[in-house]
Design a protein around this nucleic acid. Structure first.
Lengths: 188, 188
DNA sequence: CATTTATTTCAGAATCTTCTGAAACATTTT
DNA sequence: AAAATGTTTCAGAAGATTCTGAAATAAATG
């Protein structure tokens, strides 16, 4: 016993943060391990090499390599090197808003944009100019209601996509400020 | 052949929408089937019973029941009845913004709030007033850097949580308008 | 250019998630 | 209160995802 101070309190806090962050990753469609690796790099604050990650998280080399690569692709982690050391080191982006901006950018690119493209294709299937000729009136009404539903969704998704782009763009600092303000207690 | 008009163009458009919406569900942490059931109810626009869902999506009764129940819990689908019919029918919320508001409300409640609670707990582990006494200076510096990182994240998550609440609240129509405006081409 | 060191890849294993189908439960009708 | 109809639950099966570990590849060193 060494009095009030536990020498590994910091390590414990890190571990718990890693666990919680990993859990969250799972709920939002990225793998738990990938989120854990990110959490480790973020909470550590300094560059770690593959072996550091393997040892701390108790995962295989393959898994560590794959997760680090994925984090690089997302743009939330970058490579570094140490003088006189052949290994690669990895460091997480330390600014939370910048990190979040990267995540938004990638998710729009990977999920929203393809979804919008598909939705436009689907919408064209029932484009009245090309398809409605010769329909019975009730069928025509059904197609029109369908089109209204798709259009509503398309408009919504387009708004989301535009907001996202604006947030992500260099000028998007403004949106960050707006968000902070809108979320403040003052803005009633 | 019946000329230009394909009698099942509507059904094809619905099926493709269901597929695309289901796929998206997977990427955002809800099950594909649940998203498909929701897509079916949304795109159909009228109440369907369990058997309708089973037949159209080719899934088991258990799966249909569970998915519908989950959608009810999320608040994006509601129960209905038909006169002279003992079955329950299910209809999706038809307003996209209302639907999205429900999703945001639930995700904050289920994922952001618990995350914030855990983060506060973790932050307290390294609360300087209680823990820093008697640390070597370098260790103390490390703990302080750690605390700054957690605080940054906590502040960010709190902003997200507040924005979400404001969006979801009855007064949140204002935020919807703001979002639409900010995403418009006009707002340069 | 052979050796050492570091990184990536990927087939199969382990694990986790989702689905089925039948039994249990609930409700309404006769 | 028995029968008929509709709904939920859940154990095990099916399926999908993630992980391991060793082989292949790449890069640096002497």
């Amino acid at each position: 016993m060494s009095g009030k101070f536990q020498p590994d309190t910091l390590a414990e806090a890190q571990d718990r943060f890693i666990a919680v962050w990993g859990q969250m990753g799972g709920a939002w469609g990225i793998t738990r391990t990938m989120a854990e690796v990110h959490a480790l790099l973020y909470v550590t604050g300094e560059p770690l090499c593959t072996d550091d990650v393997m040892d701390r998280l108790q995962i295989s080399r393959g898994n560590a390599s794959t997760s680090l690569r994925a984090l690089l692709d997302w743009g939330v982690v970058s490579r570094t090197h140490k003088r006189g050391d052949r290994k690669e080191y990895f460091a997480a982006e330390q600014d939370v808003w910048t990190m979040f901006r990267s995540i938004v950018r990638e998710r729009i690119k990977r999920e929203v944009d393809p979804l919008l493209a598909s939705m436009h294709e689907i919408r064209e299937l029932t484009d009245p100019a090309r398809r409605a000729a010769g329909l019975a009136v009730d069928e025509r009404a059904r197609v029109e209601a369908h089109n209204q539903r798709l259009d509503q969704l398309l408009e919504f998704l387009t708004t989301v996509e535009r907001l996202g782009h604006r947030f992500v763009s260099p000028a998007g600092r403004g949106l960050q400020a707006a968000a902070t303000l809108l979320a403040s207690k003052a803005a009633g």
